[in-house]
C-alpha cells in the first residue's frame, strides 16, 4: 500500500485499471453467492444447531446428542441408508446405460428438424409435474396396469409381477424422470468429440468397440461423471417419487425426514437431513478424486 502511494500518479492509475479489469467479474458472482450463503449455508447452520438443541423452538435449549446417537446405533437406520444408496446407485447406472447411447445418437443427428424433435421428446416430460408423472407410472405398473397386461398377454409371466410399492417401481420411475439430466451433460461432451480421433483409432487397428473403449469413452468421461453425480444426488434426495412409488413400504432417508417433520421431531429430522447431505458430499468428493487423474488430460483437450 505504502509503495503504491510513492508511485507517480499515472502508474498508480494503471495499477488500478489492471485491478479493476482483473476483478471485474466479481459483481457477476454476487447474486449467486448471496443466495447460496443466505439460503443454503445459513439453513445448514440452523440444521446443525437444531439437531443438538431439540427444544430450541420451545425456548428451553439444552445440548444433547440423543438424535445423532439414536440414528448411528440403530441398525434400522443403517438399513435405510443402505436402501437409499442402493436405489441411487442402480438409478445412476441405468440412467447412464440408457443416457449414453441416447446422447451419442443425438450428437450424430445432422438435420436440425430431427435434432429438435429429439430434444422435445426427451426434455418435454420435465415440463410435466413430477407428481403427475409418478401417478402415470403407478397406473402403468400396477397389477392391472398396461405393463403387466402386455407381459401376461405375451405369455411371459403367469401372475402379475409387483412393480409398484417396492424399489423396482421407484427405480423405474426415477430413471424416467432423471434421464434428461443424464443425457444433457453427456451430450455436451460427446458433441465436441471430433470424428478424426475415432478415424485415427480405426486407422491404427482399433475396431468399433476398441475405438469406443480406448478413445471415445475416456474422452467423454468428464460428461459421464457429471451426469452420474447429478443423477445420483437427485435420486438420493428425491422425495415425491419414492414416496408415491414406494407406497410407504420402502424406507429411504428423505422419507425419514418427512416422517419426523410430521411428528415435530425436529432434532431427528435435522440429523437425517445432515446425514443425507454428508453422504451426497462424500460420494461427490470420492468420485471427483477417483476420476480426476483419468480425465485431467481430457480437460486439456478442450482448452
Amino acid at each position: 500500500m505504502a509503495r503504491a502511494d510513492v508511485l507517480p500518479l499515472p502508474q498508480r492509475r494503471a495499477i488500478w485499471r489492471v485491478m479493476a479489469r482483473r476483478y471485474a467479474h466479481l459483481p457477476l458472482l454476487a447474486p449467486a453467492v448471496a443466495v447460496s450463503v443466505a439460503v443454503f449455508w445459513a439453513c445448514m447452520a440452523v440444521l446443525v444447531v437444531m439437531s443438538v438443541y431439540p427444544f430450541l423452538a420451545a425456548g428451553t435449549p439444552r445440548f444433547t446428542l440423543d438424535a445423532w446417537q439414536r440414528f448411528l446405533v440403530d441398525p434400522f437406520y443403517w438399513g435405510v441408508v443402505g436402501t437409499t444408496l442402493r436405489i441411487g446407485v442402480v438409478v445412476t447406472a441405468l440412467s447412464l446405460l440408457i443416457g449414453y447411447p441416447t446422447a451419442y445418437a443425438m450428437s450424430k443427428i445432422r438435420r436440425p428438424g430431427w435434432a429438435l424433435a429429439c430434444y422435445v421428446v426427451l426434455f418435454a416430460p420435465i415440463l410435466v409435474s413430477v407428481v403427475v408423472r409418478t401417478y402415470g407410472w403407478l397406473l402403468l405398473l400396477s397389477q392391472t396396469g398396461a405393463v403387466n397386461y402386455v407381459l401376461r398377454t405375451l405369455g411371459l409371466i403367469g401372475q402379475p409381477i409387483p412393480l409398484i410399492f417396492n424399489t423396482t417401481g421407484i427405480i423405474i420411475a426415477m430413471v424416467h424422470i432423471l434421464l434428461p439430466f443424464a443425457v444433457f451433460p453427456i451430450l455436451s461432451v460427446v458433441g465436441q468429440l471430433t470424428s478424426d480421433l475415432k478415424e485415427a483409432a480405426m486407422d491404427l487397428g482399433a475396431n468399433r468397440w476398441q475405438t469406443f473403449r480406448r478413445v471415445t469413452l475416456p474422452l467423454t468421461l468428464p460428461g459421464v461423471v457429471a451426469a452420474a453425480q447429478i443423477v445420483f444426488t437427485l435420486t438420493i434426495s428425491a422425495f415425491v417419487t419414492p414416496f408415491l412409488m414406494g407406497g410407504g413400504k420402502v424406507q429411504i432417508l428423505s422419507g425419514l425426514i418427512y416422517r419426523d417433520m410430521e411428528a415435530v421431531n425436529l432434532a431427528f429430522a435435522s440429523t437425517v437431513a445432515l446425514i443425507l447431505l454428508a453422504l451426497a458430499m462424500a460420494i461427490l468428493a470420492a468420485s471427483n478424486v477417483l476420476v480426476r487423474r483419468s480425465y485431467s488430460r481430457a480437460e486439456v483437450l478442450r482448452t
Partner: peptide, 29 residues
C-alpha cells in the same frame, strides 16, 4: 475395413489422442 488394412495415415489435423502421453499415442497400434 480400415483397422485391418496395412495402411496408416498422418491426418491433416494430426488427430493425436489428447488423453494419452506421447508413448501411449505411438504404442496405440
Amino acid at each position: 475395413p480400415p483397422y485391418r488394412r496395412a495402411t496408416n495415415m498422418v491426418f491433416q489435423h494430426l488427430a493425436l489422442f489428447p488423453h494419452l502421453a506421447v508413448f501411449e499415442n505411438i504404442a496405440f497400434g
